[in-house]
């Protein structure tokens, strides 16, 4: 297990609980999506993985490091990189390459290795050629890819996307999702937080959170097609799932509940060919 924790509770104000007795297991190479409404505790949970929030209650081990012990935090932050929501708040330097080099210098990477690691990280996110650009001249999707390159340059075990697509336009979102998919296929462990349910369809595992608790955990099919569960989590199921159920109510029975547009269209054709 790359991440293993139990009985995790957390409060920001010492009064109301943002996390309530959460247990979690994440395997190496897994693509995990954490879904939930605003305030469900998604960010609070993942910020425990790299000690951005202190472990107040419970047990947590990430990449063999015990979070109750604070001495390995620096290593943990490198092993468990994070891309945040706001593409504009993540840069410290005036050019793309300096920004990525900054993180490497912080972690005392050997000087002569830095240029090559910057180059390789930018290539991974398909931003080669943008080395000299100022981050603020990039599009939202490009900024997030550069922020991700900064994380990748440190060779992390786990990459966390904390609503990294929420502020992007649809093409920017597609760019980030495509890179996420590529990293997953290359064997990286990916944790993505989102309330765009469509982004959970390709996950290996989906965790549904609500009011600081884990409401359910399972395959995208099991979670996203369960109307009651989605309602309890205050989320809308993907459009094909909603359509499947709304059509049923009108007496139109598609054979299987589709998750993607392509599956939906196939179901409709199948039914159409019978009538």
């Amino acid at each position: 297990m790359l991440v293993e924790g139990k009985n995790i509770s957390f409060s920001y104000d010492g009064f109301s609980l943002a996390l309530r007795d959460v247990a979690i297991k994440i395997e190496k190479g897994e693509f995990l999506v954490i879904l939930g409404a605003n305030g469900a505790g998604k960010s609070t949970l993942v910020k425990h993985f790299n000690a951005l929030l202190p472990l107040e209650q419970g047990e947590l081990r990430v990449a063999q490091i015990d979070l109750r012990d604070e001495k390995d935090i620096w290593l943990l932050r490198r092993l468990c990189g994070m891309v945040f929501q706001n593409p504009d708040n993540q840069f410290v330097s005036s050019t793309v390459e300096e920004d990525i080099a900054f993180g490497l210098e912080n972690y005392e990477a050997p000087r002569d290795e830095i240029p090559e690691r910057v180059r390789a990280a930018l290539a991974l996110v398909e931003m080669g050629g943008y080395e000299k650009r100022a981050p603020d001249t990039l599009s939202g999707g490009q900024k997030q890819r550069v922020a991700l390159a900064g994380v990748l340059a440190l060779e992390p075990e786990i990459i966390i996307f904390d609503e990294a697509t929420a502020m992007l336009d649809p093409s920017g979102r597609q760019e980030v999702l495509a890179i996420m998919d590529k990293l997953h296929k290359a064997g990286k462990t990916i944790i993505a937080i989102t309330h765009y349910v469509e982004e959970a369809v390709a996950a290996d595992k989906v965790i549904l959170m609500q009011k600081g608790r884990i409401l359910a955990c399972g395959s995208p099919e099991a979670i996203l097609t369960d109307l009651d569960l989605m309602k309890a989590a205050e989320l809308l199921p993907p459009l094909p799932v909603r359509l499947y159920h709304d059509l049923r109510q009108a007496g139109v029975h598609l054979k299987n509940c589709p998750l993607t547009n392509e599956e939906l269209v196939k179901e409709i054709w199948q039914l159409k060919s019978k009538t």
Binding site: L239, L243, L247, N261, E262, V265, I268, L271
Partner: peptide, 30 residues
């Protein structure tokens, strides 16, 4: 979705923009 259906020779009418458009067109069609 309407575009994908049209590519497979199921053109919905009237043209679909919103979810409600899609739902009522499919109800009629199916």
């Amino acid at each position: 979705i309407a575009t994908l259906l049209a590519e497979g020779n199921l053109a919905l009418s009237p043209a679909v923009v919103t979810y409600d458009d899609l739902l009522s067109a499919l109800k009629r069609e199916l």
